[in-house]
Structures are given as C-alpha cells and as structure tokens.
Design a protein around this nucleic acid. Structure first.
Lengths: 126, 126
DNA sequence: CCTAGTGTATTATTACACTAATACACTTAT
DNA sequence: ATAAGTGTATTAGTGTAATAATACACTAGG
C-alpha cells in the first residue's frame, strides 16, 4: 500500500502518504477502527523521519479520516459513509471554485474549463 | 488598472500584475501594439522592485501576450484571435489535469469534480 | 555621438515549506 | 511498577520560490 511513496516525487512525502491512506479508506481496504501502522513503524519502512509520517497523519486527522490516540495508535475513524461522501463533495466544490478563480485570472471562459475537465476525465477512464 | 496590486496578498506580485494585464488585454482595454508601462515606471508606481515587474512581463511573454523589446519597451502582441484561443484551451487543459490530480489525491471521483465545476459555473453566470 | 530610457542578467535576501532530529508524555500489557 | 510502544512538541537543517539590488546592454531621439 505504501510502495508508491517516492522521495524523488516533487509531491511532498506527507501528501503522498496521506493520499495512499485516503484511497485505501475509500476503497474499503482500511475498515473503520483499523489501526494504521505506527508512526515509527511506517517511518522505518519508508526510511523517512517519523515526524514526516506524523504530518501525514495530522492531515488525515484534520479531514476527519483518522484519529490519533496518544500512547495507543492511529485509527481509521468511523464516519458514516454519507457523511464522508458529503465531505468529498464539499472538497470537490472548493477545488472547482479555486479552478475557476485561476481560470478567470487567465481570462479563460468557464465553458472551456468544463470542456477540458470532461475531456481530461475521458482520457483517464479510458 | 493596477490599483488592486497588493503585496500582502499571498498571490505573488508578479502573478497579480500578469493577471491584471491579461484581463485588460482580454477585455480590449489594451489593444494590439499598445505599450505597457516600462519596467521602472510600473515598479515605481507600485513601489516594488523592477525585477518583479520583469518577472510579470516574462510570464506574459511566455504566453505570447506581450513582446519585450530591449531598449524600447514592452508591447501588447498582436496574436491572431484563434491563436490566443488555442493558448487558452491549452491552459485550460493544464488546469483540468492539475485539478483531477488533486482530486484523485483526495479520493474524489472525477464525476464529482465535473459536477462541482458545472454547478460552480452556474452560480457565477447567474 | 551621447544621453536618457528601455529591457537583461546575475546575484543577494527573505520567507516559507518540507524533512529531520531529539526529548517528552501518555497507554498498554506484563 | 515497569518496559516497550504509542503519539506530541520543539527545534534545526535544507531547498526553493519570491522579491530585491545592482550592474550591464541595447534603442531611440536630440
């Protein structure tokens, strides 16, 4: 599950880690209540600093995906599926807003953006 | 036209400047061949370093919006409308790609993104 | 010519993000 | 109690982006 983590990737390590775990949760590979590897375990496995793993876990905690319990471990949070779904939609909305802001700054019509997103999505699901 | 430039804004100064000019060009406030303020003029007016203005102009030049002539000045480039249109579409594509990357990282389905963008666009054009 | 004004290039400076290091506090099971 | 394992907190190192400073090269007009 963490085999894709790569320090040479320009995406920050903690982001890569968080992304992997998010996907695992979304895919159901990590069920509610499941324990994540400990900060030190995962750090050792990835040969990175524990603090970096902590940062990844913190991001997930801020999103409500995970709960860190001092002295015990980090666990997948049991949020109702529809609640998580709602959170996803909110995030999608934020991303869309940012995108359109950026596009407006470049003078690109919103319709172009929609079209480009659709096309790009088509390419990926092919 | 440059009254909105603000050093406290987290968006880089050169980006803010470039955005303003891009919009002015798109809106037709700056016609083909029009001279932009000189690097030093604009820097003095905004009380920032000339090099920062240069960076802004460079961004615009890379996009083909503007042409810098050493010893002479910086001018709005007369690109055919369809050529500029093409550039816009390319940029839209790039933005879309980045957006979907980001969404994937968060485990958000592409369809959600498309939906969110459409909705957000609807709100704006209302 | 030559001078004033233009963009150009190179090099600091500064701020911030990322990663790491290290010491601390809590939990759990023995 | 205690030992091993967990997250927590603070601090430091590293790289990079943004801005600034300064000296250079070109252009145009007198």
């Amino acid at each position: 599950m963490f085999d894709e983590i790569d320090p040479r990737n320009p995406i920050p390590l903690y982001d890569q880690i968080a992304a992997r775990i998010r996907m695992a949760v979304a895919a159901g590979d990590l069920a509610e209540g499941a324990a994540l590897p400990s900060v030190r375990q995962l750090a050792a496995r990835l040969r990175i600093n524990p603090a970096t793993v902590v940062q990844a876990y913190r991001v997930l905690e801020a999103d409500g995906f995970v709960e860190m319990r001092q002295g015990s471990g980090t666990y997948v949070r049991g949020v109702a599926a529809d609640r998580r779904r709602r959170a996803q939609e909110d995030q999608a909305q934020r991303l869309a807003r940012d995108l359109l802001d950026e596009a407006a700054k470049l003078g690109i019509p919103g319709e172009d953006v929609v079209h480009a997103v659709k096309q790009e999505l088509g390419v990926r699901t092919r």
